[in-house]
Design a protein around this nucleic acid. Structure first.
Lengths: 213, 213
DNA sequence: GTCTATACAGAGATAGAC
DNA sequence: GTCTATCTCTGTATAGAC
């Protein structure tokens, strides 16, 4: 394992467990078992090390799930995958890394770039699946796959923050999101008559909402 | 305006604009126009100042919206309020403050306590409304108000992080969430026959999901 | 590429004069 | 309650020996 690799691994680990505030050139080098000056030699700055670490984590994580996403054929399956993903990534800390970097993005342009990149990797993937599922659903045309994918990603990020201060609360939130997913699945299971009714009703609700806004 | 008040105001402002990393005893005192040592005299530590500032912000914000929440009688109205709330709080920075504190909660127990408190203030309020709306809805019993309230809060937090790195993406995510809200409204508008059908279908979807998990 | 040494800025926090 | 002064630690970053 080369020094850059050790530093990247240590940075990713610390980002998830200690957070951005606990991560410094000294602390990350100590965890990697290398000298502090090597952070600057290999990456230029702490922020750039963090950026590289997050990019690598995101690339790796998304690649891991690519096939799984491709196999999804229903909202129920997507939910099952989402639940599994949430549990796995809570342990691996990928989402936590993203949340930390994005909270630091307020001050640091490099971190903002890193967060944007990681987010894009995830949403692209989710968007493809949602686009496929929505295309064959009564909801087609009523909800944008791109927007919904971003909303899903945002929810996962928020759940991660939630989990840090109230784990049980986060669990109940996850359960509620699954209930909503079941609602989507229900709509999906309607016949042609139900479909027409749904589309009409949702359009009406949208119009009412637009009028009030 | 007393010194503690000046410090609380400065801390809240900085939390939203500069983030937790940019907030120090020195920087916050400078913005408040007071001496740095007064942070420790009045609050004991920087973390405790942040905690006090967030608590005050949360109390104030929730009190502002209390009546508005009470007036809500439909999911569509709740969505309209949610959109307005998101826009207003994006400017005031209340949600941003929460997100920052919660991201720092990983390292600091005081910040974790503060984040938990602010979160509770919001979710309690949302839970009441959702409980009321769901009670008279076909979805009654199928989705927990408490869990859904937490999911809504988490989504707002996630959107805040999203907004920091990709404002247009966050807007499209918000739009998608509104589409889902319209779906809820649609279900709400069904008659007794449709209600029975919905409940049966959702239960079936939930069973299928449970089996696969 | 890696290490030691070091410069220097900013952090949290306290003591003591006023 | 407020200010100055100061201690100590930790942060980023660089220079130069090896």
């Amino acid at each position: 394992m080369t020094t850059p690799d050790k530093l990247l691994a240590a940075a990713a680990e610390m980002l998830a467990t200690e957070g951005l505030t606990g991560l410094s050139a000294r602390s990350v080098a100590a965890r990697a078992g290398v000298n502090q000056a090597l952070v600057f030699y290999h990456f230029g700055s702490v922020a750039e090390l963090v950026e590289a670490a997050l990019r690598r984590s995101a690339d790796l994580a998304v690649a891991t799930y690519r096939n799984r996403f491709d196999d999804v054929t229903s909202f129920t399956e997507l939910l099952t995958l989402g639940r599994e993903l949430h549990a796995t990534e809570r342990d691996r800390g990928n989402v936590a890394q993203m949340a930390q970097v994005m909270s630091g993005a307020l001050r640091d342009a490099t971190l903002a770039r890193a967060g944007r990149y990681a987010l894009t990797q995830w949403t692209r993937q989710i968007e493809v699946v949602l686009g496929r599922l929505l295309a064959g659903s009564p909801l087609r045309g009523l909800v944008e796959p791109a927007g919904l994918a971003r909303a899903v990603a945002a929810s996962f990020l928020g759940l991660e923050l939630y989990e840090g201060v109230d784990p049980e609360g986060a669990t109940s939130a996850m359960a509620a999101l699954e209930s909503l997913g079941n609602l989507l699945e229900m709509v999906d299971g309607l016949g042609p008559v139900g479909t027409r009714a749904v589309r009409g009703q949702v359009r009406k609700a949208a119009r009412t909402a637009a009028k009030r806004a």
